[in-house]
Nucleic acid binder design. Structure first.
Lengths: 213, 213, 213, 213
DNA sequence: CATGAATGAGTCTTCATTCAT
DNA sequence: CATGAATGAAGACTCATTCAT
């Protein structure tokens, strides 16, 4: 039953969801098609199981990482570097799988909710970690946590899926991402400074905001 | 023939690639299935045409945007705000399509190369724009351009596809992204400051937290 | 499309519903399985079409028969003989099919209603015919029509499906059925004479009810 | 082992033969699928056992009924009423089962013969009973017995399977059937009166219809 | 003898693609 | 060039049956 999930992960990763046939999965798992259907009522259910495992794993990794950071008293930069590196490595192993599960699978509402919940939870967890760093200047920590999670998730995934290593090396990419996050977290800028009103006033009179001349 | 491409975009967006049958596309385009195959040799070729159009359009939008920015002398913040908003709107219209074309379609090598080329070109174009802003502190403008393009692309796509507007409003999201980009571009940090060597020295010599000099 | 229905009738007749595979039907009809599904959305729908055709045909035959009887002024016995013979012949051709369609197929409610309606209509039609014969003694013609239809239907079907011609020849069987029907229709007995009350009184005192001496 | 047969009867009745899976039967019987196959070599063999039990039971009921009738000296009408009611009740309990066993199961020749034999035996038994009633006018008692058995069997089964109680109540139906049988048995008509020859002469010599005296 | 996980042949059904008109 | 009926390979899924424990 675990062999089937593992096999499914490999097959979906290689062929995509549509072309990842249940027969192929069964074959790869070393069981007959009948056995596969003894454990999973449908192809979709395999994808769902896979996704739930993925969610749990991501959650676990995140908490593990946060634990480390808190215990080891790493600096912000250090922490983020670890995080980004970890996520990038995770995605390198199966660059397509996550998106396949998220985009090509008809998810039952329950799973959809679990996903949202997991993302919010991750954002909150990261926000909690960020609060430990005095140099972080974000006023809305919840949003900051959200942004960090989303940025790392989407950028590492994208790079893992379609790396252009001739243009930018993997380590350089990680450094740039970390730089961006550190800059974002520690700068004095606030989103409200950019609100339309603000921009209007700034553009037509008083200045000292903090961007253009 | 253009009707077919348009129809395909709608059908793929609605049903996904696998369930987006050629018959449905033909029907939506108001032509017979036979006619469809007179213009496209295969289903994949439709996706490829769609992707090529998508690449061209994205490229076009980017250049148009850069042109505007240069002419209108907007501030950096303003510029990025426009960019992010534009991309988000674009993805909102067809949140699934891009992923479908990029991930669910077996792309011929030629198209794959074109994609890479387009991304590099976009990075270079943005880099050129960034050079016009004296407040930008990045030393490697090429990488900075790349990061901006990738970040905007992936974050807006992700948000458009799975928005969690109860947690963060669309406008707030845009503001956060812009903040992050502006912070990244204007801060004095440099990726090299984060290189392993640097970090090692820092961790074992001078201390308090650990980012910039 | 008509070839498919015909083929289906033969295949179901020969193999039953479960073993009457769509591939076999298609093959017998001389078309590909794809073509079959261009005309019928599912296996069940073929059975439904077949049943609807059967209902219509039965109805048509009944009316034709009634027409004949009225025009040709045949005697009651004659009429029934024709009817029974006709139904028996009809069932001999495909003794299993009717029951397969009625019992082995998951009928949509619509068809179920149509069936009931058709049976009631047949009963009413026969009742109308019976009224033309002065020798018919039934008081409740509606029920009499119903009984005639049901008896002929079920007895001929049963005999056609499992004939025991060594025990009773086909023509003898028809004659017995006709005898039974004529006796039923022309005798002075009435169902009410058999009601429990009646029977009680009869069995315990006064007689002259109306059956045995 | 008897639990299995009982379970099979329920499962077949509820789901039909094709959808009545051996696993469902085993589950219902409270045994494992392996145990089921320890007692029955195949699914078909279960149906055969079921049918044989059904035949035996029907036979038993018939004899019991005949015994009662002989002992209690009931009138013909009474007797038939009992018979019809009994059969109707029997079929009401499992309206589909009999047909399933007879029509959907590939019976080995041996069982087929046993069935024929049972039916002939039943006909003979009923014929014997009928001979006890002086009011019975049939000349060919064997055929008369056959007709009674067939008529009751097929009419009650049909009514139990698809009752149209809005049109005719169950008790009324029983009464009509009994009326028909009594009329058939006691009338002076004989099948030979209906033979083609007879009819020909009648139609061309003496006239006014041509059935009862 | 009982168990039930494993098997895989066989079903229904879909859909990209062709080709005669 | 347009049409759309026809094709058939391929996929998801079922279920009677076996056999090691």
């Amino acid at each position: 039953m675990n062999a089937i999930i593992t096999a499914a992960a490999q097959v979906f990763e290689t062929h995509g969801y549509a072309a990842g046939t249940t027969n192929r999965i069964a074959e790869r798992a070393g069981v007959s098609i009948g056995t596969l259907y003894q454990y999973f009522p449908s192809k979709d259910s395999i994808a769902v199981a896979l996704l739930e495992q993925h969610i749990a794993e991501t959650d676990h990794r995140l908490h593990e990482w946060v634990g480390h950071m808190v215990v080891e008293q790493h600096g912000l930069c250090e922490s983020l570097h670890d995080y980004v590196t970890g996520m990038l490595e995770m995605h390198y192993g199966q660059p397509r799988l996550q998106h396949i599960l998220l985009e090509e699978t008809p998810l039952p509402e329950r799973v959809h909710q679990a996903l949202l919940e997991a993302e919010r939870h991750a954002a909150k967890t990261v926000a909690g970690l960020l609060r430990l760093y005095p140099e972080v200047r974000r006023t809305d920590m919840a949003h900051a946590g959200f942004m960090v999670v989303q940025t790392v998730e989407s950028l590492t995934h994208r790079f893992a899926a379609h790396p252009d290593e001739q243009f930018i090396a993997r380590t350089d990419f990680v450094d740039e991402v970390v730089t961006m996050l550190v800059a974002y977290l520690t700068c004095e800028l606030n989103a409200t400074d950019l609100s339309s009103e603000q921009r209007f006033r700034r553009d037509h009179g008083d200045s000292h905001a903090g961007d253009n001349d």
